[in-house]
Amino acid sequence: MDSVVAVEQVSKRYRDVLAVDRVSLTVAPGEIYALLGLNGEGKTTLIRMLLGLIRPTGGTVRVFGTPVSDRSHGIWSQVGYLVETPAAYPELTVRENLEAVRRLRRIGDCDVVDAAIERLGLTEYADRRARTLSLGNAQRLGLAKALLHSPRLLILDEPANGLDPAGVVEIRQLLLGLAAAGTTVFLSSHVLAEVARLATRIGIIHTGRLREEFDASELAHRVRRRLSIGARDPLAVARTLTDAGYAVHLDADDVVTEDQRAVEHPDEVAVALVAAGCPPTRLVVEREDLETYFLRTVEVDHA
């Protein structure tokens, strides 16, 4: 088995709405695969098909090489998941909720409950009823339940939902540690800056179709770069660079160019401006982040 998750030409139609349209992707062991998309573009529908919660209209979904169906009971002991709103028994405490999951999953080691509480930073909330938890702590409880049986595959829909910045960092370190130990992670997220720090592979889904897919290491070569130049006389700078053959435009009080000669050799731009008597006060190569790249990708497609 070369992949933990294999999705082949999967579609899901609801009457006149094609929610997922012929999506194919694979997730390798130990990979952190992040699926990005706007609300209503097919992320959660695809995740629910991965978990067998809904049936695809067409195509096949395999987990650990087994087609997901009503008969694929054996694979779920190796899968942990958190989809949409974390579910819990509201009148039970955090500890009691985890104990219920331990028994349902027939985990013999009683210590896993305390270990999960500590791992997810829930120690001071262990004896509080689930209905009293904040959204962030309810999310932590959901993650603790998903991890209780040490799954080989973890499927998460918006795992950072409701967490404060410190909590987001904690979950990032947790997921990185799990992946380093061999757990495969498939997640969707709106926190794109966090995805850029976490994912090893990224897919962008839009209008139900997988529009782009790439290794996270490729992002630096995909994003746009530009040279932003500050000066006391921006118009003189723009004239000088235009005369030198650079394509430039004004952005507020700065002169900006995406000309690769300028981006690769800003020192040459600085020399030319000094020689022309309009030295720059600021010269910065700016790079798109994942959020900007994502929005540009879906906007171009939508247009």
Rank of each mutant, 00 (worst) to 15 (best):
L147N: 08
L176C: 12
I171M: 01
S188V: 05
S150A: 15
D157S: 04
A166N: 14
G142I: 00
Q173I: 07
L147Y: 09
G167Q: 03
G167L: 01
D164H: 11
S150V: 04
L148D: 03
H149P: 02
A144V: 08
G167C: 02
R172K: 13
L148K: 05
G142L: 00
P151S: 15
H149L: 05
V185F: 11
A166Q: 13
Q173D: 12
L163S: 04
A146G: 06
N161I: 10
H149C: 04
V185M: 10
L156Y: 00
L178T: 06
D164L: 11
L175Q: 00
G182E: 01
D157K: 02
L178R: 13
S188L: 04
D157G: 02
F186R: 01
R172L: 05
A179W: 10
P151E: 14
R152V: 01
A180G: 12
H190W: 06
P165E: 12
E158W: 13
D164Y: 06
E170N: 04
I171C: 02
Q173P: 06
P159G: 08
G182D: 03
T184A: 15
S150N: 14
L163N: 02
V169F: 07
L154Q: 08
H149M: 07
S189A: 11
H190A: 01
I155V: 15
G162I: 11
K145E: 08
R152F: 02
E170L: 00
L147I: 11
H149G: 03
L174N: 09
A144E: 08
H190S: 06
E158A: 10
L148Q: 07
R152L: 03
